[in-house]
Design a protein around this nucleic acid. Structure first.
Length: 591
RNA sequence: GGUUCCGUAGCUCAGUUGGAUAGAGCAACAGCCUUCUAAGCUGUGGGUCGCAGGUUCGAAUCCUGCCGGAAUCGCCA
């Protein structure tokens, strides 16, 4: 199916016939631009095994290929230890004809797995920020990429809707809110809650300062802050289910969810299922007890239950406090097991969570393994680096965050400004324009994030706006829009290519690139890295631009060539669209 | 201190299952719109691939040590 696999098969025949050598794992690479040829075989390794100098070996294989498969191999060159093979135009074209809208995408099949991917997972006490944008973009995109490999994905969000942080916002709202609501204030729900979270923190700091002035040391002061004690009391009331607290909690959480939904929708992401920590935080205790009976865990002298992972290069970890209450990892064990039960065919869990929690997930997966869950070995933490500002890490409480909604607004405005300056779409309706600016702005933002290897941290400078030129989404979207314009002018109906033609170098470059796309998806999935798709689709767009600049399409006098170029343009746009959609980026038909 | 990750052009990043002269974008400079959308194309300049060893015919890529940065090693989540 892929361009390479049959070429490699023929090469392997060559080794067999010529040298009776069973060559496995032959790897072909693209020939570098400065040499003649399409695919290159490196000869050194074989020259050693077969006791033949590379030059001679190269000629032997090259001749064999051309004589045995003249319809596939056109010519070859041996330079130093490299065999550069040029394949025939009609071979490339016959492969090219297989490309359709599902190119590189396997339909759900028997080897496909059922995978649950958890991402986003926000707290309900503050709005989403740039860090969440990275998480959301990565999570969504990773799910789409895994689907190309025939897997079935369940995307879930685990919302952290309980705990002291929510009580802080609730308390501040009770004290100073005057019954302010999103409706009465016109403030988006999550932002409104965030406002009270900040207010709490201000008051908290003020009170600490007072205590310090009274002569308390820092540690005691932090323990005695009245407002913090009030928040603790509120958490206790919440836990025993005091009706007015629960009601307030529900009301304020609903404001937040409405706000999140707006942001998610604008980002173009979604979930198949939403879990709430308030419903899962007690899970896991039972498992701990069972594990204790099986001696996987042990009771420490202080009555807390722990696991000793020192043999596995980790530490001793508490799983249940002495008073029987659960800790963070207890509920993660619980939810994992609950999911294995809930979806019996589930074979993999993927968690999209920042790299600060790498240790946590190592421990979690190890515990699941010790508890003899076969899925444990398939669990994966898609860990990503922090988004940092020139001033350092973003901190919600100190207001040094780049707000997700604000940033998207800014991207929209930049897209609007640039588009209007260029003045190419003036006759579009206001509604169409709005839609276009959104596609360009949000696309630029997502691409900015997704093109970077997830494990690297991203430095975001609010002073410098995100580019719309060069290695960006708008660049790729522009290629697509141009092609749509060509197709429209030509009334293109994509007939198949049957007439033999001679390909230009730029055309071969594009075809070879397109033929390689299935490998790109496979690699991105295998490495859990959407950046591979992001960088590759840029290369494709770049190659098309070279062709576009150099050769006419509609104005090409030869009808066969004209039709072929139109078809190649159409196919390129098709694949670009597919690839960008894997990144969650939309495409405009004009821009 | 232990563990993990990162260090490539002035800046932002590709390239790491070992292969040819290390590639893009931004920024700078010089060209290309009476020809299919110039958010584009072409060219110039810019590199001790953190440092030092090692393995190899061949190392940005693998191994060891060191330097610099980040995260983590909570009965916080």
């Amino acid at each position: 199916m892929f361009a390479h696999s049959d070429l490699i098969e023929h090469l392997s025949h060559a080794f067999q016939d010529l040298f009776h050598y069973p060559a496995h794992h032959i790897s072909l690479q693209f020939t570098k631009r400065e040499f003649n040829g399409d695919y290159t075989l490196t000869l050194f390794q074989y020259s050693k095994i077969l006791h033949q100098n590379p030059e001679e070996l190269g000629h032997n294989i090259g001749k064999y290929l051309i004589q045995t498969y003249p319809q596939i191999f056109a010519s070859y060159e041996v330079i130093k230890g490299f065999l550069n093979i040029t394949v025939a135009d009609h071979y490339l074209l016959s492969k090219y004809n297989n490309i359709d809208e599902n190119w590189g995408i396997l339909s759900p099949n028997t080897s496909g797995k059922l995978i649950l991917l958890e991402y986003s997972s926000p707290n309900t006490n503050k709005p989403l920020h740039l860090g969440h944008i990275r998480n959301n973009a990565l999570g969504w995109s990773m799910a789409e990429i895994l689907k190309t490999q025939g897997h079935q994905l369940i995307k879930v969000n685990l919302i952290n809707d309980r705990g002291i942080h929510i009580c802080k916002s609730m308390l501040a709202w009770l004290k100073w809110g005057n019954n302010e609501t999103p409706e009465s204030s016109g403030i988006k729900g999550d932002h409104l809650i965030g406002k009270y979270y900040v207010l709490f923190d201000k008051e908290y700091k003020k009170q600490i300062e007072k205590l310090l002035q009274k002569g308390l040391n820092k540690e005691d002061a932090e323990k005695q802050v009245p407002i913090m004690q009030e928040a603790q009391d509120m958490l206790r009331d919440w836990e025993i289910g005091k009706p007015e607290i629960i009601e307030l909690w529900k009301k304020m959480n609903n404001w937040v969810y409405a706000g999140f939904d707006t942001t998610y929708k604008r980002m173009g992401i979604g979930f198949d299922k939403i879990y709430y920590e308030s419903q899962t935080y007690l899970l896991g205790k039972e498992v701990i007890t069972k594990g204790l009976e099986k001696n996987i865990f042990f009771k420490a002298s202080d009555n807390s239950i722990r696991i000793d992972l020192t043999q596995d290069g980790l530490d001793e970890k508490v799983l249940l406090r002495a008073d029987g209450t659960s800790v963070y990892i207890t509920q993660d064990i619980g939810t994992a097991i609950q999911r294995f039960t809930e979806f019996s065919k589930l074979s993999q869990l993927i968690y999209v969570v920042g790299n600060e929690q790498e240790y946590h997930f190592k421990v979690l997966f190890k515990i699941l393994e010790k508890l003899a869950y076969p899925q444990a070995k398939e669990c994966h933490h898609l860990s990503y680096g922090m988004v940092e500002l020139p001033t350092g890490k973003m901190k919600s409480r100190e207001g040094t965050v780049v707000d997700a909604d604000d940033l998207m607004d800014e991207m929209y405005l930049t897209a609007k400004q640039i588009t209007e300056e260029l003045g190419k779409v003036n006759e579009l309706s206001d509604e169409e324009k709005k839609c276009l600016f959104e596609i360009i702005g949000i696309g630029a933002l997502k691409y900015f994030i997704l093109k970077v290897d997830p494990k690297k941290k991203i430095l975001f400078n609010p002073q410098e706006s995100i580019d719309f030129e060069g290695h960006t989404a708008p660049f790729i979207q522009y290629v697509y829009a141009r092609i749509q314009s060509l197709l429209k002018k030509a009334n293109f109906t994509h007939p198949s290519i049957s007439t033999p033609i001679t390909l230009q170098k730029e055309e071969r470059e594009i075809i070879k690139h397109l033929l390689h796309i299935p490998d790109v998806y496979a690699e991105a999935a295998q490495q859990y890295n959407p950046a591979i798709v992001a960088n590759n689709v840029y290369d494709l767009a770049k190659k098309y631009n070279r062709l576009y600049q150099e050769y006419p399409v509609l104005k090409e006098p030869n009808e066969n060539i004209k039709n072929f170029r139109l078809h190649l343009s159409y196919t390129t746009a098709l694949v670009i669209k597919q690839m960008l959609q894997k990144l969650g980026i939309d495409l405009p038909s004009r821009m």
